[in-house]
């Protein structure tokens, strides 16, 4: 097991920022910070009152630029093949709409309001993710 204290403090601090952002969106806009839902609904041209979704997504997109003012943006190299990325994207797209949420909507907001439905969804996607990584790393 890895126990990287710096990474853990950064994870906790990052989590608090995420929780703060979700709280602000709820308290001021009355909306749930579920990213798959925001992206999915933003695609629906017949819906009105979309402005906040676009604004939220723009903030999310430009966040690395602002992050760069305070701290170096972590260097990331992704070695996953394009084919796997495409399959994964399709699965995430279908799965998050079918299950009405992802890590943010179910995993953070849903659990924060003690929704049993979200707790079940979170346990399910964590187990599915762990099984997938097990097969990728230890069986293939």
């Amino acid at each position: 097991m890895i126990w990287d204290t710096t990474a853990i403090w950064q994870a906790l601090a990052g989590g608090l920022l995420i929780g703060f952002a979700a709280s602000v969106l709820l308290i001021f806009n009355g909306k749930i910070a579920g990213i798959s839902g925001i992206v999915g609904q933003a695609l629906n041209r017949s819906l009105h009152g979309q402005g906040w979704r676009y604004a939220f997504l723009i903030g999310l997109i430009i966040s690395p630029l602002i992050y760069g003012f305070f701290k170096a943006v972590p260097q990331i190299s992704i070695t996953t093949s394009d084919t796997i990325i495409i399959i994964a994207g399709l699965l995430v797209g279908i799965g998050t709409r079918m299950g009405n949420g992802c890590t943010s909507g179910h995993g953070v907001c849903g659990i924060a309001r003690l929704s049993l439905r979200s707790i079940v969804a979170t346990v399910t996607f964590m187990v599915a993710g762990a099984v997938t990584v097990y097969i990728l790393r230890h069986m293939i």
């Binding site: 994207g89 699965l91 995430v92 799965g95 079940v120 969804a121 996607f125 599915a128 099984v131």
Partner: peptide
């Protein structure tokens, strides 16, 4: 809910990316 979360979890595990 269960099937959707399972498909999402598989995709998340494959790419290491979730939507946010």
């Amino acid at each position: 809910l269960i099937l959707g979360a399972t498909l999402f979890g598989i995709g998340w595990g494959l790419a290491g990316f979730c939507p946010g």
